[in-house]
Amino acid sequence: MKTGRCSVSLQVMSDLPVVALDGAVSLISGFPALAGADLVVEQGEIVLLEGPNGAGKSTLLRLCAGLAPLHDGAGTVLDCDLSSRPARRRVRRQVGLLAHASALYDDLTVEQNLRFWAAANRVDEPAIEPAMQRLGLAERLRDVPVSGLSAGQRRRTAMAVIVCRRPRLWLLDEPHAGLDRSGRDLIDDLVLAAIDAGASVMLSSHEVERASGLLDRSSGPSRAVTVVGGQVRC
């Protein structure tokens, strides 16, 4: 079913790529953070984005989340045309973005944050508790205000929001940052479980060894691409 410039079909399996960028340009304050990026991500695929700081990895993830505008070139995510504002809004509801900022309210507890974001994302209540259990937040951290969490615990809470959402496309910006070894293993397990469930994953990481290990363990297709100067090199 097509509505305007965006298919709203909820069918998970599709022959169309999940992400298809062709010469995508995105400007941040007039600067081309993405300068003609080409990328295709298939259903069930993990794509690792490598590259130096300021190369455009975060902007690429934000573009795919429907948050950064597409100024030139062509791009579709989950069959939604990124050049159309209404379509970009539809993309947002179907992706999960773990950015550098954790997007949590400092004054609320871990559970209050999760319940708010779950309700805002139209997630059913029963999905919250398993996500908290999975991320190790169900016991002593449940009633702790987010302002009292360590960086790693904040990361786990932010990840729990994404696990609740069960998005079709996971966009993870340095997901291992600030986490201890068990936390990193947990993130890897969640990513692999998402792939097994039919989702696609794009992640950026400076920890090449760990991220490469993740690609090797994936049951689906996987590859690493390098982002340099706002362009994607395979």
Partner: peptide, 10 residues
């Protein structure tokens, strides 16, 4: 990043 997260909720 809460404003971005609000936009993502729809």
């Amino acid at each position: 990043g809460n404003l971005d997260a609000l936009k993502l909720t729809g």
